[in-house]
């Protein structure tokens, strides 16, 4: 043991040197380092927290992906009108032309077009998912189809109901009805997406509050001692804020990676499946901007959760009154 050296004596200096920026970056580096150390100190609970956040974001990301592909499908359908009437296979093109003419004459403004078997196969081969099918099918199995166009949808429905009873007709496919159904599905998915986003936002915030609270509890000793030694609220708060942002970031990134992996796997399965028909199916991936927005939102919510937690909890922890003995 030795005496305090001359140069060290009695200084009143509380804050050591270093420029404003040096001190600022040091504080933030310390806080980020502490946040990281806290995660590593309890890897299991950190992993659990991160997984919770990832699951919170997974649902809306999946719904978003579904929504995007539905929108793509609706876009493909947007160009088509009216209906397609599939005739029984024994009806040849001449019979079909006669039937179509009979219908056209009976109804004003009705337009008909007979799609021959060859034409049908070619059209089919143009559709996404059936590309190249014309090359692999030997005997053309398609029926002759009458394509119908009528501006008045109510009138069209009534006509289609009549034609369904026609013995020459196999079945009727109403594009308008299909579009309507698709629109209903889209509306439903859009509503579900809203709910999923709201749930994820609330969930991520609550999880972050909870995780911050766990961090406060795990480090209660250090926080109390720091307060006794004169730490200000910002000093206690900073590592918790970084911790929240860090967990939000890792959680949301994990969710994004999971969604991308899931989409890739689905896509590969679909491609393999469709290759058996010598065609390609294109699925849209999730929008990268959405993924980025989710990561940013998760970071912000992680910060916010820690902020809320510390606003509530540090008031009590800052109470230094405690029996010293």
């Amino acid at each position: 043991m030795s005496m305090e050296p001359e140069s060290d004596r009695g200084a009143v200096r509380i804050r050591a040197g270093g420029s404003f920026w040096q001190n600022l970056t040091q504080r933030h580096r310390d806080a980020a380092g502490k946040a990281w150390a806290r995660l590593r100190q309890a890897p299991l609970s950190a992993a659990f927290g991160v997984l919770l956040i990832a699951f919170a974001w997974l649902l809306p990301l999946m719904v978003h992906w579904l929504e995007r592909n539905l929108a793509g499908a609706a876009g493909d359908l947007a160009g088509s009108h009216g209906a397609h009437v599939f005739l029984k296979v024994e009806q040849d093109e001449a019979a079909a032309t006669a039937i179509a003419e009979r219908w056209r004459v009976a109804e004003a403004d009705l337009e008909t077009r007979v799609i021959s078997r060859d034409e049908g196969l070619r059209e089919l081969a143009e559709l996404p998912g059936f590309r190249g099918i014309d090359a692999v099918v030997g005997d053309n199995p398609l029926p002759v189809v009458v394509s119908i166009d009528l501006a008045d949808p109510a009138r069209l429905e009534a006509l289609l109901d009549d034609w369904r009873k026609d013995p020459a007709v196999d079945f009727v496919q109403s594009d308008a009805r299909l579009k309507r159904k698709l629109r209903h599905v889209q509306e439903f998915v859009a509503a579900a997406a809203w709910v999923a986003w709201l749930l994820a936002l609330a969930g991520a915030l609550l999880i972050s509050i909870h995780l911050s609270r766990l961090a406060v509890n795990a480090d209660r000793d250090e926080i109390s001692v720091s307060f006794w030694l004169g730490a200000d609220d910002a000093h206690i708060r900073r590592p918790l804020l970084y911790g929240g942002m860090l967990q939000g970031f890792i959680g949301a990134s994990l969710a994004a990676i999971l969604v991308l992996a899931l989409v890739a796997a689905t896509h590969r399965a679909l491609v393999e499946f469709s290759q058996q028909f010598a065609s390609r199916i294109e699925l849209l991936g999730p929008d990268p901007r959405t993924l980025l927005a989710v990561v940013v939102a998760a970071v912000v919510l992680g910060w916010l959760g820690a902020f809320v937690c510390t606003s509530v909890d540090l008031g009590q922890l800052g109470q230094t009154r405690e029996d010293i003995e």
Partner: peptide, 9 residues
């Protein structure tokens, strides 16, 4: 700890 609290480098 008190030095970190006080913002020493």
């Amino acid at each position: 700890l008190p030095l970190r609290i006080a913002g020493w480098t």
